[in-house]
Nucleic acid binder design. Sequence first.
DNA 1: TTCGAGATTTAGGTAGTCCGAAATCAATAT
DNA 2: ATATTGATTTCGGACTACCTAAATCTCGAA
Lengths: 229, 229
Amino acid sequence: MITETDQNYLKETYALQLEHDHVTTSMLADRVGASAATVTGMLKKLAERQWVAYEPYKGVTLTETGRSIALEVVRHHRLLETYLSKALGIPWDKVHDEAERLEHVISEYLESRIDELLDHPAIDPHGSPIPAHDGSIRESARLHLTDVRAGTDCEIVEVSDRDPGLLARLDRLKLHPGTRLQVLGVEPIDGLITLRVATESLVLGSKTASQVIVRIIKESHHGRVQQHH
Amino acid sequence: MITETDQNYLKETYALQLEHDHVTTSMLADRVGASAATVTGMLKKLAERQWVAYEPYKGVTLTETGRSIALEVVRHHRLLETYLSKALGIPWDKVHDEAERLEHVISEYLESRIDELLDHPAIDPHGSPIPAHDGSIRESARLHLTDVRAGTDCEIVEVSDRDPGLLARLDRLKLHPGTRLQVLGVEPIDGLITLRVATESLVLGSKTASQVIVRIIKESHHGRVQQHH
DNA sequence: TTCGAGATTTAGGTAGTCCGAAATCAATAT
DNA sequence: ATATTGATTTCGGACTACCTAAATCTCGAA
Ligand SMILES: [Mn+2]
Ligand SMILES: [Mn+2]
Ligand SMILES: [Mn+2]
Ligand SMILES: [Mn+2]
């Protein structure tokens, strides 16, 4: 039997694998809100069930089975966020926490009703791709706003859905998926980024900018895009 | 902390108190799907937390606190059933199981959004009253179709939401809350009840008829309504 | 190459929910 | 009044998910 806890561990492992090439016990402990000791125990259990490959002291990787369990939960999560936002008019900084609990209890039947009613949406309110029913998902390379050179034109693709405070602020600044912007300058010491959005300019800290994923529309002439990490 | 299990025990105790004047361990065991031994243990815990009054070998009663916890869950359940039915078009024999899981995880915020969108509904798809936000509820006397004399005109008020098979059948027979009917005859041995609904007549067994709650529109001239039990 | 520091695992334990089997109780029939 | 029986509780045990503290491992700095 797959418990809600199993689903959360697998989902967070999936998310961490997208951002890091090595997923550790402590990273997972941080995400699921449990102690490292607890995570070690759970990883042994998940490995026994063949949902992850686990090398003590090394790290953890999802198996194919584990990945599809994770994607099923991610699909629920993102469909629910989209539904709550569009059908119930719930603001985008409140949908995540609600979906976090609902994702584990909706039936496949309800999932498909929601999917139909929304006309099979491809992205959620934060710009994240919604896995298809068959588990396929478009996992494009993720370019963080912190890694964009000055002078570049881009469009926001996705923002992190975890922090309501961040989302409320981005909303006030009119920074949403789809928003066009130009990077005016990057301050090298503190990483402050100056942007032009429509006709206004504004400054973001690197903590905020690192939560924003963009795609480049017109590259700066002065050099190449920096690599993250 | 109130767990999902706590909520289920309290909710079922509430439901049983409406139908019986004495709620026993085995009745609860049957409803929550656990052994009598398990229920005894849980009742001790619930009594310790002052959610029920529990007399070993005697039975169990909700305290005021226990009742309001139960009504909160019942409100979630019935609002969700109504929403799933009206907004998502889910058939009335499928909404119960879905609501059974969702009821424990929706926030007060989502509850109120749903309530607003439905314009503060008073009854759910099965005719059961939805407790108000403040916990008030119209608990009218419940007259079962099995207790109605031949010759009486009535209207269906409520049907049990637990059994999808029953609901599917009632739907096929066009027996819904609001449906008018006349009891043509009651067969004394097997309890078969003959009804006239619109222009057609049909026969129900007592198992089915006992799940239907009615209110009398015009009493038979030949005597009084029988008492249940 | 050795030595820590920090990450991780192991050990020992709690809380919650469940079970079957055995013991006990309460109510009824004799 | 007593025996029987069905309901209920008690007992011993299982399983999951969590914790802290102690032991152990890994890897980079010296
Ligand atoms: Mn979750
Ligand atoms: Mn999202
Ligand atoms: Mn429930
Ligand atoms: Mn109902």
